[in-house]
Nucleic acid binder design. Structure first.
Length: 292
DNA sequence: GAGGCGTGGGG
DNA sequence: TCCCCAAGCCT
């Protein structure tokens, strides 16, 4: 059964794939890795421009490693989760120092890099090098959960059982495995979506367990939305936006303007320093900036 | 293993 | 409008 589903999804992908720049054959493994970092929790359409500018400026890991980490944070712009920029910079340094400037193709080597977890390691190995790897992201988890398990949504945490199911779908031949990986992700991204799935154009609707069960609603624990208004995250974002927008270190008063409540502001600022996203400069006249 | 971590767009 | 969510990672 999995073989049949794989064949249909891959055929669907061949006819319907979006033209995303990081999927083009000329894209380097480094370009693929940069896209994977940027796409962690950030929609495709918001990544296109920053990705192109990033690779123009830093065509290789060595180029990024030679720049200050603060430049990476500034170039990250408003993609969100700016610690990813710091980790991508750290990954570039590690690739330069430990792997001769070449993005690794081995899963364990990839996972040893900052910001690279099981998903990103598998994605780079598969998309950049055509290796056989279980690429299990939120899209694939949802697709397999619906098609194979008949459930509307995957649970909050990835389980061993899910990985085992994904293994049964993964073709033996590396090239086909890589095509399946990108195709199953694409299906989840544009057809088998979380909100309003387009089952009318789904290539595997006739074998979908979720459909056969009558599209049962999600029966698990309520999917709690992440609150944001008034959180430290919002405060950190406001403070970091000030640092990003200034070429010179900024005085504390400027940060105070960006976030009025002092207790939360100081807590957030301290956490930014702890994370390496902000540094304090100046002895008698303290100022703040992105890291050097 | 649950919670923290940005930001903006679409239903 | 408001809520949900978008190719996760780390502690």
């Amino acid at each position: 059964m999995p073989d049949h589903i794989v064949a249909r999804v891959v055929a669907w992908y061949d006819a319907n794939a979006r033209d995303l720049p990081w999927r083009r054959p000329i894209t380097s493994p480094w370009g693929v890795m940069v896209s994977e970092f940027m796409l962690q929790q950030t929609p495709v359409e918001r990544v296109r421009e920053p990705w192109a500018r990033w690779l123009e400026r830093w065509p290789t890991p060595g180029d990024l490693a030679a720049s200050p980490s603060g430049d990476a944070v500034r170039a990250w712009g408003r993609l969100g989760y700016p610690r990813r920029a710091l980790r991508l910079h750290g990954a570039a340094v590690a690739i330069t120092e430990r792997f001769g400037g070449r993005v690794p193709d081995d899963l364990d080597d990839l996972r040893s890099l900052p910001g690279v977890g099981s998903y990103t390691a598998a994605a780079v190995a598969s998309f950049a090098y055509g290796r056989r790897a279980v690429v299990l992201d939120t899209n694939v988890r949802r697709v397999l959960g619906r098609v194979a398990a008949g459930e509307a949504y995957p649970g909050a945490a990835q389980t061993r059982a899910e990985v085992a199911v994904a293994e049964t779908f993964l073709p033996d031949e590396p090239a086909l495995a890589a095509r399946w990986a990108v195709a199953s992700m694409e299906l989840g991204a544009v057809v088998c979506t979380a909100r309003a799935p387009r089952c009318d154009v789904c290539p595997v609707i006739d074998v979908c367990a979720w459909r056969q069960a009558g599209y049962p609603a999600w029966a698990g624990p309520p999917r709690r939305g992440q609150s944001y208004e008034g959180t430290d995250r919002q405060c950190r974002g406001a403070l970091l936006a000030v640092l990003r927008g200034s070429d010179e270190p900024v005085a504390h008063d400027e940060l105070a303007t960006a976030w009025l409540e002092p207790v939360q502001r100081e807590r957030a600022l301290a956490s930014l320093v702890t994370d390496g996203l902000a540094v304090r400069t100046g002895a008698d006249d303290p100022r703040w900036s992105l890291p050097g």
